[in-house]
Design a protein around this nucleic acid. Structure first.
Lengths: 233, 233
DNA sequence: GTCTATAATCAGATAGAC
DNA sequence: GTCTATCTGATTATAGAC
């Protein structure tokens, strides 16, 4: 749970008191409950989707009364949005520093491995996000149309530059990004299917590394690139 | 709606009459309503998941009374299972005739293109199936453990043989199958995201062909294979 | 076979005691 | 800040008229 701060454009808990007193030390337990409810909500939304999840079960899972959920977040809708915002913040960290001068194989390899790692460490987050999009992304279409599209176009421009410089095979950059997204997130979203077919109880370090290696090799080779490890002398 | 037959291990409508009379011509409209409700249910389950979908909305979409849904299927649970069975039948058709003697590039290319086509023609089916698995596959874990696992192992054995014969690069067959599944289904399940980012209103023939071509090229190249088109003299 | 009316349950939300 | 009790509406399911 690496998010210490709750607020900022995310549904804020109601003001402590109208006069503003009693602010000094009360925030700690407030944040703790805030995060506990948020995490429980993520679990329930991942298990049943937005409509299917119930605030009662979220409260039960968090170990608080149902009314507390309404106190911290002002309703199911806001709670769900808070979960989604939390996920988007987590997603946005990656590939922000990518440049045309970088080595394509290294950048793509690193990106793929980070995505696999993220799928491994935050499967519920990936699932909530996946279901939101499957259901038509009714609450985050604005985000997709603005931030996410811009992000893809920025990266696509760099990949196009690499192609024009002859440093990789001519591939469609947007679809390359879709491929990396879909293959990596598949292991989080479809873990029940993947693990059952592979006859594994759960993901282990070794399997995660094997997956990351497989995806990196396949996709890099598909782009006409050699793995970064083989390139060093 | 290419499924003319409803029954067979799928929830059957209640018997017409205890004595068995009046069977000759009544089946047509019965099947029509059966299929209409099934299709409407697929839509609603794709939009809201199992828990989130309501039989009332399914009935509304199908243009029948809510009680009719309970008449044809004996409840929400059975209706959902019928939808899932319908989807599984649709999925199972492909790659059944794959043999060691076949050409790897041709088989994989054909498989990828069929999957892209299926994602294009049956996006709702893909979504219902995806959400079921994301939510832990509670109702089809048995199917995954038996039929689906056997299917993967059969195909994996053939791919392994190809690798041993040096006819393709050494890749893990199960993960190759996962890659084909995830990349192709992504365009159905995440259509809201894909289309928004690409700034398309909906999928068109040209885009579908471009996707199929991209995926086939990337994955075949990843397997050390040339596209079938380039292989013919 | 189909529909209306209704039962029984469960949902999200809020008031008010503490 | 937290809880219990309760309101209001939606949900699945069924009974019974036609």
């Amino acid at each position: 749970m690496p998010q210490p701060k709750p607020g900022q454009s995310i549904p804020e808990p109601k003001a402590n008191a109208p006069d503003g007193r009693r602010r000094y030390k009360r925030g700690r337990i407030r944040d703790r409950n805030f995060q506990t409810i948020l995490k429980a909500a993520e679990q329930e939304f991942a298990l049943h989707g937005y409509r299917g999840a119930s605030t009662q079960k979220i409260a039960d899972r968090a170990g608080v009364a149902k009314a507390s959920v309404h106190y911290y977040f002002s309703g199911k809708d806001n709670l769900y949005l808070a979960v989604l915002n939390n996920i988007i913040e987590l997603w946005n960290v990656h590939l922000e520093d990518m440049k045309v001068d970088d080595d394509p194989a290294e950048v793509l390899d690193k990106f793929i491995r980070r995505k696999v790692e993220l799928a491994h460490t935050h499967p519920q987050a990936s699932k909530v996000f996946a279901m939101e999009i499957i259901q038509g992304a009714p609450r985050i279409k604005g985000y997709i149309r603005s931030d996410m599209r811009r992000w893809v176009r920025e990266k696509a421009a760099i990949i196009d530059a690499w192609v024009e410089q002859g440093r990789m095979a001519p591939v469609d950059p947007a679809h390359l990004i879709f491929m990396i997204w879909s293959t990596t997130q598949h292991y989080a979203d479809f873990d029940a299917q993947v693990l059952t077919i592979l006859n594994h109880a759960e993901y282990e370090r070794e399997l995660i590394d094997r997956i990351a290696g497989f995806l990196s090799r396949m996709i890099l080779r598909g782009c006409g690139l050699s793995p970064p490890a083989e390139r060093a002398p």
